[in-house]
């Protein structure tokens, strides 16, 4: 089962409403909340969901390429009121922008993201495979390409690079090719007769999140 763009929008907005309204206090425990609906600044009908998270790298290498020296001209007074403990070098904090966009070709939602260090330098593919937001073992080992990861079945890349469909900025995305099928299977197993259109669509998105959740460990019920 595929979604039209209009249905995608209804699904997202209903989902966001369910997260934010607090009608079901346990909803955000079960589903990843924190999304906002965004529109293209000029053209209507190109909306998407966005969210920003902070994640870590499973790596101890320092690849910041920042070798700047200290500046002795700046001196500060002694200050006992500063927490001088430095963040654990084991886990460098990485900012990730997450998007759920409408994939026109496949007529399903698609998971897009970009990840960068605190100085604004985007991560390489090798570094991306070490992001702790991905469940360990779900991304295949990096095979040498600089822009895509493939599963052993080479029919399609699992993770590829491409432009954000609305923003036009470079992003990574999980390929949406089998989404309609897999989500359809989940939806077939539930009884939707009682639900209205919006409810059915948001359930569809919930099922989609559970599929994507097999790869991406989306934090829920913010800790």
């Amino acid at each position: 089962m595929a979604l039209s763009r209009k249905q995608f929008e209804i699904a997202c907005k209903t989902f966001i409403h369910k997260c934010d309204s607090g009608d079901d206090p346990l909803y955000t425990q079960k589903h990843p909340a924190g999304w906002t609906w965004k529109e293209h600044p000029t053209y209507p009908g190109l909306g998407y969901m966005a969210r920003q998270i902070t994640t870590t790298l499973r790596s101890q290498e320092d690849n910041t390429r920042d070798t700047t020296e200290s500046d002795d001209s700046v001196q500060e007074v002694e200050d006992v009121a500063v927490d001088a403990s430095r963040p654990s070098p084991l886990s460098e904090l990485i900012n990730a922008q997450l998007w759920v966009v409408y994939a026109v070709t496949f007529q399903v939602p698609a998971f897009y993201f970009s990840a960068h260090r605190s100085n604004g330098v985007p991560l390489t593919l090798t570094e991306i495979t070490k992001l702790s937001m991905f469940r360990q073992g779900t991304l295949p080992a990096h095979t040498g390409s600089t822009f895509a990861l493939s599963t052993p079945d080479p029919a399609f890349a699992l993770l590829s690079q491409g432009d954000h469909p609305t923003l036009g900025t470079p992003c990574w995305y999980l390929h949406p090719c089998n989404t309609a099928e897999v989500v359809g299977e989940i939806m077939d197993a539930v009884d939707c007769r009682e639900w209205g259109e919006a409810e059915r669509l948001s359930r569809w998105l919930e099922a989609w999140f559970s599929v994507v959740g097999n790869i991406v460990d989306l934090p829920r019920g913010e800790r």
């Binding site: 910041t64 390429r65 920042d66 700047t68 020296e69 200290s70 700046v74 100085n119 604004g120 330098v121």
Partner: peptide, 13 residues
């Protein structure tokens, strides 16, 4: 800076 000293940082894009 990343070395934990008072000094500028750098982003190499």
């Amino acid at each position: 800076n990343v070395q934990g000293k008072l000094g500028p940082r750098m982003a190499d894009l």
